[in-house]
Amino acid sequence: MAEAEGESLESWLNKATNPCNRQEDWEYIIGFCDQINKELEGPQIAVRLLAHKIQSPQEWEAVQALTVLEACMKNCGRRFHNEVGKFRFLNELIKVVSPKYLGDRVSEKVKTKVIELLYSWTLALPEESKIKDAYHMLKRQGIVHSDPQIPADRTLIPSPPPRPKNP
């Protein structure tokens, strides 16, 4: 078990999205989530780092980054939701799926996952109105044709952290 001592958000994310990982490594994913919760500006820094990884030309790195993003949405609470709910971050996701930006160079798997995440957040976080604006814009542009089917285990149901800490 690696300990968080001396680890930064960037080092956790590099480990969690390492293209050499044979499968998603939840120790690092949860380590990243925990680090966000520890740092004053954790969510702001984290979304910037995540946007960069999600735009990786390496599909596996981008897919892992999207899994990390999904985990953060479940485990990092309102502070993180607020950052994701800003156009500054949403625009980075839009770039991934839009042919006007990176869309032509991004795999279908990554684009599908981005659209699924956006749609699931429009349902789970109606108070984050910019997420809806972004999603509806993608529909108007014909980038999203119909709402995706979200598997039951992928909906954003707020859950208690997997490793509750005793103060």
Binding site: F87, R88, S98
Partner: peptide, 15 residues
């Protein structure tokens, strides 16, 4: 004030 100006600067990507 900072938050207000951040809100003003937060725009959807032009398509």
């Amino acid at each position: 004030l900072g938050e207000e100006s951040e809100e003003r600067d937060d725009h959807l990507l032009p398509m």
